[in-house]
């Protein structure tokens, strides 16, 4: 695990440096406008990496927590809540009123859903409740989003909503980044502290309790950590798919399937994948218009299917 993390960390660091030199601006113009590096490429790099880390980490935590390799950070409804808040503000035409209008609205949605999930899971701390509630929340929030789209009289607002939903790391200011990243880091720390619980959970919820995990506490921390890791970032960036499902799945064999040891490599791997995808988007932007979420899904899905089919049956755990 240590070697793997070191390697992934090294790759990520190299990519972070390299990404500053990727863009469409010719070098002579770049030298005249050095602020492009600091005001455009640097925050873009930071936001891509932290989104990737959040997705990789939350994916690994959630899969370990629910003991289900199909779990994906979106299943709890937190991302949908962020999206709904943001979409509502865009549809009302307030998206341009302030730099923080959209992300703050998204975070209001996240706070609401988190509070609801937290209250519910303190009453019924079990995975089925979490999955079913997430399913219900996702379809409710999805319906509300569709409603907003259909009610919106402004075709440009609808276009903006659709583009926003596709997710993009571009054009976020340093101020926004400085606001969002500390919140995410707080979420990462909370999730990181769930390592022991994840380890014990691999023997089932009952054994986890026997070994000292408290159901109420672990669901509380899970929801809080997920909300902080995902909520602010999704509110700013939009929904970027598939990294949270793919990366933990890909790296699990390298840590001998140990759910706690998966967290760090998965977080780093998520950062690499998000940043690499964004760099590809930028490199190709003169030839083809791609959105980073589209690219991750396009690249990820066939690879994921390949891994799934290649795997020996025994490693499909208990499903």
């Amino acid at each position: 695990m240590r070697k793997l993390s070191l390697l992934l960390g090294l790759v990520l660091t190299l990519l972070m440096g390299g990404s500053l030199f990727i863009g469409t601006l010719p070098l002579d113009l770049l030298l005249q406008n050095a602020s492009v590096l600091w005001e455009l490429r640097f925050p873009r790099m930071l936001i891509a990496v932290s989104m990737g880390v959040s997705l990789g980490l939350t994916g690994a935590v959630l899969q370990g927590f629910l003991r289900n390799p199909l779990a994906e950070p979106g299943i709890m409804g937190i991302s949908s809540a962020a999206a709904l808040g943001a979409v509502m503000v865009i549809a009302l035409g307030l998206g341009g009123s302030h730099l923080f209008a959209v992300p703050l609205a998204g975070m209001m949605g996240v706070v609401g859903v988190t509070f609801f999930l937290y209250k519910l899971m303190q009453k019924h701390p079990n995975p089925l409740t979490l999955i079913l509630t997430g399913l219900a929340l996702n379809s409710l929030l999805g319906a509300l989003m569709t409603l907003i789209l259909t009610l919106s009289h402004n075709p440009y607002a609808s276009l903006e909503i659709i583009f926003w939903l596709l997710g993009s790391f571009a054009h976020h200011s340093l101020g926004q980044v400085a606001f969002v990243i500390p919140l995410s880091v707080a979420g990462w720390i909370i999730l990181w502290r769930l390592r022991f619980t994840l380890e014990t959970l691999s023997l089932g919820e009952e054994m986890a309790i026997v070994l000292g995990a408290s159901p109420k506490k672990m669901y509380g921390f899970l929801i809080l950590g997920m909300a902080l890791s995902l909520g602010p970032l999704v509110s700013l960036v939009g929904v970027v798919g598939f990294i949270g499902l793919l990366v933990p799945h890909m790296l699990r064999p390298f840590v001998d399937h140990k759910p706690a040891d998966l967290l760090l490599p998965s977080a780093l791997g998520g950062g690499i994948m998000a940043l690499a995808a964004d760099m590809v988007v930028r490199l190709l932007s003169n030839h083809i218009d791609l959105k980073v979420g589209v690219l991750t899904s396009l690249m990820g899905t066939p690879f994921f299917l390949y891994l799934l089919l290649k795997q020996p049956r025994s490693s499909h755990a208990t499903f």
Binding site: R67, L201, R252, P259, S314, S315, T318
Partner: peptide, 11 residues
């Protein structure tokens, strides 16, 4: 417990 399966293929 009388029976136990590990959720992951752990050694």
């Amino acid at each position: 417990p009388a029976e136990l399966t590990c959720a992951w293929p752990l050694a």
